[in-house]
Design a protein around this nucleic acid. Structure first.
Ligand SMILES: [Mg+2]
Ligand SMILES: [Mg+2]
Length: 437
DNA sequence: AGCCTACT
DNA sequence: CAGAGTAGGCTA
């Protein structure tokens, strides 16, 4: 049961509360949500039917938000995401106290093995099946066959127990302070916001999600101006709070640079640059002459650069950040590291547990779409993005764009608060704490 | 380039 | 009929 629960935990927003998923234990339909999540895990890990898996999870999420105990199939069917098939299962569970389908799944060796193996970060349904076909049915056996694993999977195996433990809110704050302290010693300063379930107010998180934007004075000033001239009342309030927070987060507003809209030669990198990521705000005319831009920390960073700010790039900046955190014994392992995303492991004594740390580095003009994305929850993001599509927009962590009649996204719209994104797609603003879907 | 796994 | 959207690693 623990194993199945974990799989569910892992699939649901990895964050809120260990077995919480969409449903807390005080929820009147808790047991129903549990069995739907178990079915979701089964469809993901065993049958690899993503859409079924998503359907069960979506149903569980809706049911978790339902205020009273569901009493039958008919009532269940009235809930969004619950139709004929799922309401029949709910009916069976209500009248017999169990579900035949689930009883069978629980006794199935293959299903049990696959679910256990996917506890390891980096091991998904396909790898689990591969391992199972190689005769490996549990984690103990997997530890004897490490030659079959990638780097990510090895780290996942090493910390499999720790990664299942939730992180108390106070420890997230301790980790945050440690990271701020470390990064404050770098020449390049960053705006840092802890997102994920922490920002949604959870008392316990599955990992720590850190959004960094590199400093940009011009963008900052412009943001403030626009906010002050904003008209809508709620808009102003919310947006101002956000700006205030952002400004508070900034430790040193002296550095400025622009590097995205330079057409560097940089072959592979530039080819990979998505339209999403290029400047669209009338960009910080900025002092790219202000050469203090990006020089990395005192050391050895391979990219510690002799070039002007305009030649810097994300990869070098994020590498430098991770390097700094390793130097200060905060980051202990890497799962992956690219231009904009770091996935790894951290530990801040006296805590003995190793914790999952994700860092996302964005250009400052992507800040609001960035925190919107990185705050989640995952189901909330899916839902909001679905609504965006219905309203004729497409939304990602960089920007929101209108969908042309051809289906080709247009130019990014200007965004100076999270609220504005909600406004564009006609959604009522939701506080982070209201985004726990 | 395509698949897998991951992130919200 | 469509389903959110994207990053990074690995493989061929
Ligand atoms: Mg998280
Ligand atoms: Mg995370």
């Amino acid at each position: 049961h623990v194993l199945l629960n974990f799989a569910y935990y892992k699939m649901s927003s990895s964050d809120s509360g260990h077995r919480k998923g969409p449903s807390a234990k005080d929820n009147p339909n808790y047991d129903l949500c549990e069995f739907l999540m178990e079915l979701s895990a089964y469809e993901r890990n065993v049958t690899r039917n993503t859409f079924k898996s998503n359907a069960y999870r979506s149903a569980a999420s809706s049911l978790a938000a339902y205020p009273t105990r569901v009493t039958g199939a008919k009532e269940a069917s009235s809930i969004k995401g619950i139709g004929k098939r799922i309401s029949e299962k709910i009916e069976e569970f209500l009248s017999t106290g169990k579900l035949k389908k689930l009883e069978k799944i629980r006794t199935d060796d293959t299903s049990t093995a696959l679910t256990e193996l996917t506890r390891v970060s980096g091991v998904g349904p396909a790898k689990a099946r591969q391992l199972y076909d190689a005769g490996i049915t549990n984690i103990m056996e997997l530890k004897k066959r490490t030659e079959l694993l990638t780097h990510h999977q090895l780290i996942g195996l090493k910390y499999v127990e720790d990664f299942e433990k939730k992180i108390p809110r106070a420890e997230v704050q301790t980790i945050e302070r440690a990271i701020r302290g470390s990064l404050s010693n770098m020449k390049q300063q960053y705006n840092m916001t802890v997102c994920g379930s922490y920002r949604r107010g959870s008392e316990r998180s599955g990992d720590v999600d850190v959004l960094l934007t590199y400093d940009n004075v011009e963008v900052e000033r412009k943001t403030v101006k626009l906010e002050e001239s904003s008209s809508s009342l709620t808009k102003e309030t919310n947006a101002k709070n956000e700006v205030a927070k952002k400004r508070k987060d900034i430790s040193d507003g002296s550095s400025d640079e622009e590097n995205h809209n330079k057409d560097n030669i940089n072959t592979k990198k530039n080819r990979k640059l998505k339209a999403d990521q290029k400047y669209t705000t009338s960009s910080p005319s900025g002092s790219s002459s202000d050469n203090k831009s990006y020089a990395t920390n005192e050391s050895s960073s391979p990219s510690a650069n002799k070039e002007s700010a305009s030649k810097t790039n994300h990869r070098a900046m994020l590498q430098s950040v991770v390097h700094q955190l390793q130097k200060d014994n905060i980051v202990t392992d890497q799962l992956s590291l690219g231009d904009t995303k770091f996935m790894g492991v951290c530990r801040v004594p006296p805590e003995e547990c190793y914790r999952r740390l994700d860092i996302r580095l964005l250009a400052p003009e992507h800040y609001y779409c960035g925190i919107l994305y990185f705050t989640g929850s995952d189901l909330f993001n899916k839902d909001m993005r679905t609504q965006a599509l219905a309203a004729g927009f497409t939304l990602n962590e960089y920007n929101i764009r209108p969908m042309g009649s051809t289906g080709v996204p247009g130019e990014p719209l200007h965004v100076n608060s999270e609220l504005e994104v909600f406004d564009y797609i006609g959604m009522k603003y939701k506080q982070p704490s209201e985004r726990n879907m």
